[in-house]
Design a protein around this nucleic acid. Sequence first.
DNA 1: GTCTATAATGAGATAGAC
DNA 2: GTCTATCTCATTATAGAC
Lengths: 217, 217
Amino acid sequence: MAARAVATERPKTRMRILAACRRLFNERGPAAVTTAEIAASVGINEGNLYYHFQRKEQIVEALFAEFEHGFRDVAAAYSPGADDPRHYRDYFAGWFNLMWEWRFFYRDGAAVDRMAPRLRRHLKALADDGQAQVRRVLHGMAAAALIRASPQEIEMLVVNGWIIATYWIDYLRSRHGIAAIRREHIDWGAAQAMGLFLPYLTPRGRAVVELARSATA
Amino acid sequence: MAARAVATERPKTRMRILAACRRLFNERGPAAVTTAEIAASVGINEGNLYYHFQRKEQIVEALFAEFEHGFRDVAAAYSPGADDPRHYRDYFAGWFNLMWEWRFFYRDGAAVDRMAPRLRRHLKALADDGQAQVRRVLHGMAAAALIRASPQEIEMLVVNGWIIATYWIDYLRSRHGIAAIRREHIDWGAAQAMGLFLPYLTPRGRAVVELARSATA
DNA sequence: GTCTATAATGAGATAGAC
DNA sequence: GTCTATCTCATTATAGAC
């Protein structure tokens, strides 16, 4: 959300290009959007586009840098030791919001990988951090008596929860033919992921689910 | 597995093309494999390739037809009313085998969709049938006292299990950087999906998990 | 059925004027 | 920074000889 102007940088067109690409990529995936289309969408000439980004790959990399910032912000939103169910609800909602804002990275992972192979190690590092963070949060929920689960069970929940959240958007496309993702579809995914935790919730923990269900975000 | 020669059909080259494409697509995705590469891989000329398939899209469609047969075979392997844990183990292993043999359809869903849009409704119909079948199987397991779960809980398990199974391969790529999928990775996925059921298993049901773990397939 | 051309396309990318 | 014009190139696809 913040402007995030990097030092000497000030060009407005560059930002408009990135904003347009994020929108277009989220709609149809980076592989299906041509540079001509991007330029037209921004209202500039294709040559001008190549002044700002010499390779299409660089656009993807620049967008990834933004995504990375958002990712780390979401991960950092957890307060260790928290025992208010609302805190956990907000934390998980943060992940689904991020997923919504950068859904092409989730839905078109294979295409992104082919297009910008240098991102692979960054993506992996990001997933490492994010998953470690979710693991800490689940242990925190166990400590706060919101869930009752062994370390092995928590490990299973981390991985399965990660997969459900990550691929929910593509699941909607392939299973329900939903191409235009709306906010309600993301909320639906959050509820589906919650299902994983149901058998492990303590009475206090059920409050997290109830709060999430009644949230209007 | 069966020859599946369709009536008047007998050309060997066509089959070699399809076999090569299945291998290449599984390795790197249909979008990243060119017709020149396919022809070279088969050991024929590119013009000859276009004699057999006028459009690349038709190759994908022909492969999908094979996949569809395999899919329905797997779905049909369930014996209603079975209460032998081994039957359920074999049934679920069948799904993961199919996933292994046709992994590009799972991993590159978006690319397949762009390349052969006519497949969309077929894919959806297939997923409808498959999921309905898995639902029946879970109800069967409940009836056989292998799991104890309400209809709502079964519904959650069907969807979450479907997602874990479907996207396991891409998860390995994005999370662990595994590009070359091997059989052991598929077994790992099956074990991960099993984690979903753990809280719902009856003592008898645990035998399914134990059997799956000790299976060498 | 298979080959040797070669056409047709369309995408990414560059040069240089303004 | 932005534009016009052009290039390169990979890829799909076709025509026609053998």
